[in-house]
Design a binder for these strands. Structure first.
Length: 410
DNA sequence: AATCCACAGGAAGCCCGGGAAC
DNA sequence: GTTCCCGGGCTTCCTGTGGATT
C-alpha cells in the first residue's frame, strides 16, 4: 500500500489489539466462564430432542450482560456439532427487538430453514392466515424439532398483545410430525404479568434466572478474551480488575465490561501508546458515559430540547437550582425567538419529568411553604453536553438570548 | 387553626398520523 | 380506496398538597 493519510493510523491500530472482533459483544467464545451450570440446565431440557421428545418451553430471565444470549447461541452451536445437518433439531434465533411483528416472526421461522429459494416466504404480501398455515405446513413436513429462541421476548408483549406467542404455542398443538419448542429471553422479570394466563403457564414450563456476574467473575471473562485479543504485556496489571470492578458496580454487566476494555484499548491506540493503562480505562468510562448522554440529548424531540435549553440558561443565570415557573417563563421566551408553538405549563411539567427520568436533570418536588409547592430543578449533565446542545442547528437563533434578571414577565 | 401559594399530577377528550381491516 | 382503530402528543379542567405565614 502506498503512503496515504491512513498509513500511520493503520500502523498504530495494529499495534495494540491483535483481534478486535474478540472484544465485540457479539463474539461467541469457545468457553463461557461461570456459565457452566446455566448451560447445563438448558442443555438438560433441550437434550430430550435426541429422545424424540419435545423439550419444554423455557423462559430465561436476567439483566443485560448476564450471558443469556451467549448461552443460547452456545447451545445452538453445540446442537450443530451433534447434529451437523440439522436432521433432528433445527435451531432458530430471533431477536424480537429487530423482528417484532407476528408476520416477521413467522417469516423468520420459515426462511431461516427453507433452503429452496423459490419456496421462500415473501417479506410482505401474504395475509396472516396464509403465512401461518404455510409456515405450519412447512414446519410439519420437516418432521423435526424446532427450537425457536425469542430474544428480548418482552418486546412482543406490548406491541401486538401476546397474539404471536399464543399462535406459536398453538402451532405446536396443530403439528402432527414436527415439534416446536420456545425459548424466551427477557431482562424484565415482570413482563409475565402482561401475558394471558394460559400463554404464561405454557411458556414457562421451565424458568431460569441468570444472576449478574460479580467482579471476580467479570475478571475471568475479561481475562479469557484478553488473552486472545492482546499480546502479552500490553495490558497493565490493574486494567482488567478495574474494568471488572467498574462494571460490577453497574449490576455485573459483562457487555459493559467488554465495552470498557475495548474502548480503553482504542483510546490507547489512538494516543499512540503501546500499553493500556488504568488511566485509559477511567478515560474510557467517562467517554462511554458521555456518549450515552449525548446520544440521548441529541435524540430528544425539539420541545424537550427547548425545555432543557431553558434549564441551561437558568443555571447560567447564577441560580444553581430553579423552580418550574422559572423554567416555564424562560421556555416561553425561547419559543418566541425560535418561532415554535408554546406548549402549556401542564405539558411542560411532563417534559420536565421525562428529562428527570432520563437523568439529564434532577427534579424533586419541594414545598416552600407559602411560596408554594413546586419542583426544584437542577441540571445534571456536564458542560460539554450543554455546549453541544447550543451548537444544535435549531438553537442557532438563541446565540443572542439574554436571560432577563426579572424572570416574571407576565 | 386557617390560609394560601405555586404548582403537582389525575382525568377526559381532541387531533393527527399510520397501520390494519374492510 | 375507505374506514376503523390505536397510540402519542397535547390541551382543558380539575383536585390535592406541604408548610410558612397570618
Amino acid at each position: 500500500m502506498s503512503e496515504s493519510v491512513f498509513t500511520k493510523h493503520i500502523e498504530r491500530r495494529n499495534r495494540i489489539v491483535k483481534n478486535k472482533s474478540i472484544l465485540q459483544t457479539s463474539y461467541l467464545p469457545e468457553i463461557l466462564p461461570h456459565r457452566k451450570e446455566e448451560i447445563d440446565s438448558v442443555a438438560a431440557v433441550i437434550a430430550s430432542v435426541f429422545e424424540g421428545d419435545k423439550p419444554s418451553n423455557i423462559l430465561i430471565f436476567g439483566q443485560t450482560g448476564t450471558g443469556k444470549t451467549a448461552v443460547m447461541n452456545f447451545i445452538g452451536n453445540e446442537l450443530k456439532k451433534v447434529d451437523p445437518k440439522g436432521e433432528t433439531a433445527v435451531y432458530i434465533y430471533i431477536n424480537c427487538e429487530v423482528v417484532d411483528t407476528q408476520y416477521g416472526i413467522l417469516h423468520s421461522i420459515g426462511n431461516q430453514t427453507i433452503k429452496d429459494f423459490d419456496k421462500r416466504i415473501p417479506f410482505t404480501g401474504w395475509g396472516m392466515d396464509k403465512i401461518y398455515s404455510e409456515t405450519k405446513n412447512y414446519v410439519d413436513e420437516q418432521n423435526k424439532v424446532f427450537i425457536v429462541v425469542l430474544d428480548e421476548i418482552d418486546r412482543l408483549v406490548n406491541k401486538s398483545g401476546d397474539d404471536i406467542l399464543y399462535h406459536l404455542l398453538k402451532m405446536n398443538e396443530d403439528l402432527k410430525n414436527s415439534k416446536l419448542s420456545l425459548v424466551g429471553i427477557s431482562n424484565r422479570v415482570n413482563f409475565m404479568e402482561f401475558l394471558d394466563p394460559r400463554v404464561r403457564s405454557r411458556l414457562s414450563e421451565e424458568k431460569m434466572t441468570f444472576d449478574p456476574y460479580d467482579a471476580k467473575q467479570l475478571e475471568d471473562i475479561l481475562r479469557s478474551r484478553a488473552e486472545l485479543a492482546f499480546d502479552e504485556g500490553v495490558l497493565e496489571s490493574g486494567v482488567i480488575p478495574l474494568c471488572a470492578a467498574k462494571s460490577a458496580k453497574e449490576m455485573g454487566d459483562a457487555r459493559m465490561a467488554l465495552n470498557l476494555l475495548r474502548t480503553a484499548a482504542e483510546i490507547a491506540e489512538r494516543n499512540g501508546d503501546n500499553v493500556v493503562t488504568e488511566a485509559h480505562v477511567l478515560y474510557a468510562k467517562n467517554k462511554i458515559e458521555l456518549d450515552i448522554v449525548s446520544e440521548t440529548v441529541k435524540a430528544l424531540p425539539q420541545q424537550s430540547k427547548t425545555v432543557l435549553m431553558s434549564i441551561i440558561f437558568n443555571t447560567r443565570q447564577d441560580n444553581k437550582t430553579m423552580i418550574t415557573g422559572d423554567v416555564y417563563s424562560t421556555y416561553k421566551d425561547l419559543c418566541n425567538i425560535l418561532r415554535m408553538t408554546v406548549l402549556t405549563q401542564r405539558r411542560v411539567t411532563d417534559l420536565i419529568s421525562e428529562l428527570d427520568m432520563l437523568g439529564i436533570i434532577h427534579a424533586r418536588v419541594r414545598s416552600f411553604g407559602r411560596a408554594g409547592r413546586t419542583r426544584e430543578i437542577e441540571l445534571s449533565i456536564p458542560g460539554e453536553i450543554c455546549k453541544m446542545l447550543e451548537e444544535d442547528e435549531n438553537m442557532a437563533d438563541l446565540k443572542s438570548y439574554r436571560h432577563p434578571n426579572q424572570t416574571k414577565l407576565m
